[in-house]
Simulated scan of single mutants.
Amino acid sequence: MQYSTVFPRIALVVAVLFGTIGVVAGPAAAAPEARFPGGLASNYVETDLATFHYVRAGSGTPVVLIAGGGLWGYSWRDVLPALAAEHTVYAVDLPSQGYTEPRRADFAYDLPAMSAAIASFLDAVGLDRTTLVGHSWGGAWSMYFAQEHPDRVDRLVLLDAPGLDAEKAPVAPLFTTPLLGELATELTTRSFYAENIRATFAHPQLVTDEIVDAYYLPFARPANRAGFLALWRNLDYRVTDAGLHRITAPTLVLWGGADTWLPATQAGALAARIPDATAHVLPGCGHALHEDCPAQAVPLLSDFLR
């Protein structure tokens, strides 16, 4: 979940945690079966690392979509059908996301671990080489994978993706502070989750109750919340920053000009450090770029992948 960077929201969370506003923690039971729009069926594949949940559509050259932190493949509901007209498209949940179940208690939830998860999924579905499209944290994981496995990445698309050793969201200390982070994660209710999902959109009216429910149900699972918190604490963008020159795949960097999570100036700075990269900033679009402004973002994606 990409929390807003507005300082008053931090004060609200602190107030919630210390009892000035009463809340009830989200449900601890496992979320129901995943339901992807358009009638696409859920698929599961077993590996030593995890049981991966994914949806697949289309035919042609492979494209793997990786959602942002606290989200899942549902994030790509507007992107997947468009790309499936020309490609075989996989929207996969990585550990901490959606309906994927890690199988290792010692999974590290850091950049190497998430890169290993990508490799494990690609191996399981028989993809030696693919295009990766990653949003937010999913972009950071894809970026690191492209640095470590350049021979396996045909093209790379990064949407509002952290990867520079640069400005972070002001809310980050809330989750990296011991005890406070645990409380913030455990006590995130549906209403607070919905508020912060809407804060990633420049057009918050697009975030319907159906969308909030689709995201919140799997986020409410204890294992996903724990992984989400661990990622806040373990993702080290000094590592991705140092390895940007090792990305050999043609790269498209897309950013929302109205992103309140990471400044849009990072788009050009990131593209300038990757050998074969271009950047596009879409005015009036938020951090959840492909959901907030699909009419602008999807054609850019399709043209680049074509």
Rank of each mutant, 00 (worst) to 15 (best):
Q2W: 04
S4F: 02
T5N: 15
V6S: 15
V6N: 15
L12W: 11
A15C: 14
G19K: 09
I21N: 13
V23Q: 13
G26Y: 01
A28K: 14
P32V: 05
L40Y: 04
S42C: 01
N43T: 08
N43K: 08
Y44I: 07
V45S: 01
E46S: 12
T51G: 12
Y54P: 14
R56N: 14
V63N: 01
G68Q: 10
L71T: 15
L71N: 15
G73Y: 08
Y74C: 11
W76A: 13
R77I: 10
D78A: 10
A82I: 09
E86H: 14
D93L: 02
L94T: 04
P95F: 02
G98Y: 03
T100F: 03
R104P: 04
A105I: 03
D106Q: 01
A108D: 07
A108G: 05
L111N: 03
P112N: 04
A116N: 07
D123S: 09
A124F: 04
V125I: 13
G126C: 04
D128Q: 11
L132F: 06
V133M: 02
S142F: 06
P150A: 09
L156C: 00
L156T: 00
L158D: 06
A161K: 03
P162L: 02
A166H: 09
E167Q: 11
P170L: 05
P170W: 04
P173Y: 05
T176D: 09
P178R: 06
A184G: 04
L187K: 10
T189N: 00
T189K: 00
R190E: 06
R190K: 05
Y193W: 01
A194K: 01
E195Q: 12
L206C: 12
V207I: 09
T208A: 11
E210F: 01
E210Y: 09
I211S: 12
V212M: 11
A220S: 15
A220N: 14
R225G: 15
G227A: 09
N234Y: 05
R238T: 09
D241K: 00
L244G: 03
I247H: 02
T248Y: 04
T248M: 04
P250E: 11
W255M: 11
A258H: 13
A264S: 15
A267V: 02
G268N: 03
A271E: 00
T278E: 13
H280P: 06
D292W: 01
A297V: 11
R306H: 13
R306E: 15
